[in-house]
Amino acid sequence: MSFEPRIIAFLCNWCSYGAADMAGTSRVQYPSNVRIIRFMCSGRIDPNFVVEAFLRGADGVMMTGCHIGDCHYIDGNYKTVHRYEFLSHYLDVLGIGSERLKLAWCSAAEGNKFASEVKEFTDLIRGLGPSPMRGDDDE
């Protein structure tokens, strides 16, 4: 059976979830590999959640939120950036590889952008193969 990446996407309520919604209502196709989890703000994405996602067998994790300057809570996504950099380094040292973590900004109007980011990331992970943390037998 060919490898299908399992991707967890953390979306903020105000922009990127809106973008995903926009992609849906405008019938833009994007891979079904992505599992969406909604947060009120991308600044709520605790690094622990990302680590747990990898432990539970995610092949890739996306952190998405509003563009810098557009955060509904003014500076929530500044924290997202710092956490993303922190996590990237952690994943590199641990040996999972920071390329399995993606940070993307999508405003509520950018349904197409959200779809293309998901597609791009899914292709990248498909090329990388299963995460080394993923068990052999689970789905």
Binding site: P47, N48, V51, E52, L55, R56, F86, L87, H89, Y90, V93, L94, P132, M133, G135
Partner: peptide, 18 residues
């Protein structure tokens, strides 16, 4: 929960990195 690296150590490695 059976993970390749326990949640306990993964999170401790993460928290103590800084």
């Amino acid at each position: 929960d059976v993970y390749p690296i326990s949640l306990f150590h993964s999170i401790r490695l993460l928290h103590l990195m800084e």
